[in-house]
Write a protein that binds this DNA or RNA. Structure first.
Lengths: 195, 195
DNA sequence: TTTTAATGTAATGAA
DNA sequence: TTCATTACATTAAT
């Protein structure tokens, strides 16, 4: 086992490209990588000051405290900075903010945290909601805005949730198709070898 | 919950316009939609001939038996049927299948089970592998594809394992921070009560 | 029992 | 929109 902790690497190659998960081409530059590429590039820009809120679930914070500083600091970091220092600072800020919530407004500690992380709390669809969505998906995997609005109303969900659900569902279908295609090819290939 | 499956809708409005995600204007025509708009458009294309199997560890089954029936029944079910009946049937099939394995090929009954359950056998990282992973994690908890490939090569692991490990490691870090923060809140709260 | 590898999927951003 | 990747909840192996 190589005991070199991979931290002594160096030289060049500071690209941040992400490989397509599941593809096996491009072993290009399998040589070494720089410290900079590990600590990587934090070229995270801040597209702050957007006009309309892209994160409606954060707005609930507005009537809970009069300290915009807290929201900004919590929202501004797109990438949740999980490494040591920044991460802790982040958490502390969230904590301070939490003091401004009343008991009743405080849904749960975890939920607040994810809010201030700037990420929408994960929606848990009910079984019946899934059933309806699936039944619609079977006949139309590309519902227009009208269908989505109708679904949103009938299922008591945001239209955005519907849209995202169909996007993810299409991705899942595509994945499963890829999978079955692969198996077919593989089986054909191996059976050709055997006969 | 509305039990009407939304398939009985009707009349007009068959546009397929996509709303800008995140905007909340234009509630135009929030009325109903036609069957045609649901059934519509099935313009499914298939980007076929994609490369990699999503469950490569199942492929090893090929050289262990000449009974594709077993593989098919095992693979075809996405959710590995964890409830009573199906699960038991599954186990019996695995047992029968196992007769075809030679001693050397038979790793362990449990391992076979997890294969046929469609779940990857749990990877047991060595201590030295963990050490390297941890040392990299300390400086960068979001390694790019280049770093992951490098790690995979040096540690003799699949790149997928590296990726999953970092995902779980990030989740663990988050959890521990949550917990310590929670303790801090509780302590602050109680000490405020006491003074 | 606890820890953690593996899985499924909602959410996000880039192209 | 797709696509890759993330967070997060859950399952299950150790």
């Amino acid at each position: 086992m190589a005991s070199t902790p991979l931290l002594s690497a160096n030289t060049a190659a500071s690209q941040n490209c992400q490989k397509a998960s599941g593809s096996m081409e491009n072993k290009a530059t399998h040589s070494s990588f720089s410290i900079e590429s590990i600590l990587g590039l934090e070229q995270k820009d801040e597209g702050i000051l957007a006009a309309k809120s892209q994160r409606p679930w954060i707005d609930t914070c507005n009537n809970l405290d009069g300290n915009p500083q807290l929201q900004l600091s919590a929202i501004s970091c797109e990438r949740p900075l999980l490494h040591a220092n920044n991460y802790l600072m982040q958490e502390e800020r969230v904590l301070k903010c939490e003091k401004y919530f009343s008991i009743t407004e405080k849904v749960s500690y975890k939920r607040e945290l994810s809010w201030y992380r700037g990420r929408r709390p994960r929606t848990a669809f009910t079984r019946s909601q899934i059933e309806v969505l699936e039944s619609v998906f079977r006949v139309n995997s590309y519902p227009g805005i009208d269908v989505r609005e109708e679904l949103a109303h009938k299922l008591d969900l945001d239209e955005d949730r519907i849209q995202i659900w169909f996007q993810n569902r299409r991705a899942k279908l595509k994945r499963s198709h890829r999978e079955s295609q692969f198996l077919m090819v593989k089986n054909t290939f191996t059976s050709n070898l055997l006969e």
